[in-house]
Simulated assay, not measured.
Amino acid sequence: MNGPEISLDAHHAPKGASDVVALGFVKALRFCADTFFAKRYGHRAVVLETVAAVPGMVGATLTHLKCLRRMEADRGWIRTLMDEAENERMHLMTFIEVARPTLFERFVVVAAQWVFYLFFFGLYLISPKTAHRVVGYFEEEAVISYTHYLQEIDEGRSVNAPAPKIALDYWNLPQGSTLRDVVEVVRADEAHHRDVNHGFANELAGLPTTAVAPCPAHVELQPNWKTAA
Score class of each variant (00 low, 15 high):
V54F: 04
L125D: 04
Y41S: 01
V108D: 01
A111T: 12
V20C: 03
F104P: 00
L48I: 09
R133K: 12
V109S: 14
M82E: 13
H91R: 07
V115Q: 11
A13T: 14
E84P: 00
E49Y: 08
F31S: 15
E49Q: 14
V54R: 02
F119S: 11
P128N: 02
A85G: 13
R70L: 15
R100A: 14
K129Y: 05
L62M: 14
D74S: 13
H43Y: 03
D74N: 10
F120E: 10
V58I: 13
A17K: 14
Y117I: 00
R40Q: 11
E97K: 14
L29Y: 05
R30E: 14
N87F: 08
V98T: 03
T61S: 10
E86S: 12
V134A: 04
D19Q: 07
A13K: 14
V21L: 14
V58F: 00
E88L: 10
L92K: 05
D34V: 07
V46E: 01
V134I: 13
I126D: 07
L68N: 06
D34R: 15
T61L: 06
C32I: 13
Y124H: 12
F31R: 15
Y41R: 10
M93H: 12
L118N: 10
V58M: 02
L68D: 04
V110E: 06
F36Q: 10
G56K: 02
R69E: 11
E105D: 13
K66Q: 11
A28R: 12
E88K: 06
T102M: 05
R40D: 13
R100Y: 10
A22Q: 02
V134M: 08
F116E: 10
F37I: 04
M82A: 12
I96E: 12
A99L: 04
V46N: 03
V115A: 15
A52R: 01
R30F: 02
G24F: 06
F116H: 11
M57D: 04
L48K: 04
E105G: 00
L65S: 13
P55N: 08
R106L: 13
E105C: 04
Q113A: 09
P55F: 05
K66W: 05
T63G: 02
R89C: 08
L65F: 14
E105L: 13
F25R: 09
T94Y: 01
V26A: 05
R100I: 13
V51A: 09
W77I: 12
G122I: 09
L62V: 07
H64K: 05
T94I: 15
V110F: 03
V51N: 02
R30V: 09
V20N: 05
T61Y: 07
E84Q: 11
F104Y: 09
W77H: 01
K129V: 05
F107K: 11
P55E: 12
